[in-house]
C-alpha cells in the first residue's frame, strides 16, 4: 500500500448550464492512499483556492454512501473502479502513483450540467412526484401489524428501496436510461401490500414521466446494475415491464402521456 502518490487529473470544467465546458489538467501531489476520492479533490481545491483559482465544483453531502448526492464518472466508470461503492466511499488506495484520472459529470440530456461536475437531477424527483408514493393521509393509518407482509416480499422490497437516487445508472447506461432507478421504486411499492391499490396507475404514470424527462430506453445492457452502489438488480427492470404490460391490459382509468413540466 504505497502511502503517498502523485496523480494527473483531467477534470471537466464548465461555468454554468449555458457555457461550453472543457477538460482542465491538474496535478495532485502527495495524495495519501487513505484519503477518500473526495478528500483528494478537497486537497486539490484548497490548493486551487490558495493559488487564486476557482475550485472544482462537485456535489457531496453525507460522504458515507447513503445520501446519493455525490457521483462523477472516473476513468469512464460511474462512481469509479470499486464495485458497489459511491464516489465518496471510494478511497485512493484504488489508484497508484502516476495514474492519470479522467473525471467527468453524469452525461444525459435529462441531467443538464449546472457547473463543473455538478448536474441537475430534478428529473428523478419529478418521476417520483408522478406516482412514486403510497397515498395515505397522516393519522389515518391502520395498526401497523394489521397487515402481515411475507418476509421474502419485504426483503425483496427493501433490496429495491435501498436506491439512493444517485443517477449512476443513467450515467452508465449506453442509452442514458433511467430504467433501473424507476423500476426500483416501482418494484419496492408493488411488492408491499400497502402499494397494491395504486399499483396499476403508479407504473404507468412513472414510466410516462420517465419518458417525458427524455431518458433513453433499456436494451438490457446491464451497465446500470454493474455500477449501482446499492447493487439494485436489473430484474427490477423486467418486473417494471411486467407491471406495465399488466397495467395496460388491466387498467380502466386513463393515464395521459406526460410532457415535461
Amino acid at each position: 500500500m504505497s502511502d503517498s502518490m502523485n496523480l494527473v487529473l483531467h477534470v471537466w470544467r464548465q461555468r454554468n448550464r449555458e457555457a461550453k465546458g472543457a477538460f482542465e489538467r491538474y496535478e495532485a501531489k502527495d495524495i495519501s492512499s487513505h484519503m477518500s476520492f473526495l478528500e483528494m479533490l478537497d486537497v486539490v481545491n484548497e490548493k486551487l483556492l490558495a493559488d487564486g483559482k476557482e475550485p472544482i465544483a462537485f456535489d457531496h453531502d453525507c460522504r458515507e454512501g447513503i445520501c446519493g448526492m455525490c457521483g462523477v464518472v472516473i476513468n469512464g466508470v460511474a462512481h469509479g473502479p470499486q464495485a458497489a461503492t459511491t464516489t465518496c466511499q471510494l478511497h485512493m488506495r484504488q489508484f497508484k502513483n502516476g495514474d492519470e484520472i479522467w473525471i467527468e459529470p453524469w452525461r444525459a440530456s435529462a441531467f443538464p450540467v449546472i457547473r463543473d461536475l455538478v448536474v441537475d437531477r430534478s428529473a428523478f424527483d419529478r418521476v417520483i412526484q408522478a406516482g412514486g408514493y403510497i397515498s395515505v393521509r397522516t393519522g389515518s393509518a391502520p395498526e401497523a401489524n394489521a397487515t402481515p407482509v411475507s418476509k421474502s416480499d419485504s426483503d425483496l422490497a427493501m433490496d429495491a428501496a435501498q436506491c439512493i437516487g444517485c443517477g449512476a445508472c443513467v450515467a452508465a447506461c449506453p442509452n442514458a436510461s433511467a430504467s433501473l432507478f424507476v423500476s426500483a421504486k416501482v418494484g419496492h411499492l408493488a411488492l408491499m401490500p400497502q402499494g397494491e391499490p395504486e399499483r396499476m396507475d403508479r407504473v404507468r404514470k412513472m414510466v410516462a414521466q420517465m419518458d417525458a424527462e427524455g431518458f433513453g430506453h433499456c436494451s438490457n445492457h446491464g451497465e446500470c446494475e454493474a455500477v449501482c452502489p446499492k447493487g439494485i438488480s436489473v430484474n427490477f427492470i423486467a418486473r417494471m415491464n411486467r407491471e406495465l404490460v399488466l397495467a395496460m391490459a388491466a387498467s380502466r382509468d386513463p393515464v395521459a402521456p406526460r410532457t415535461k413540466d
Binding site: V73, R107, P174, N175, H221, G222, E223, A226
Partner: peptide
C-alpha cells in the same frame, strides 16, 4: 430517442457489463 438522451458523450467510457 437514445441518441437525443446523451447529446454530449464521455471522453473516456469503459463498459463494465455490456
Amino acid at each position: 430517442r437514445s441518441l437525443k438522451a446523451r447529446p454530449v458523450g464521455y471522453q473516456v467510457k469503459r463498459s463494465v457489463a455490456t
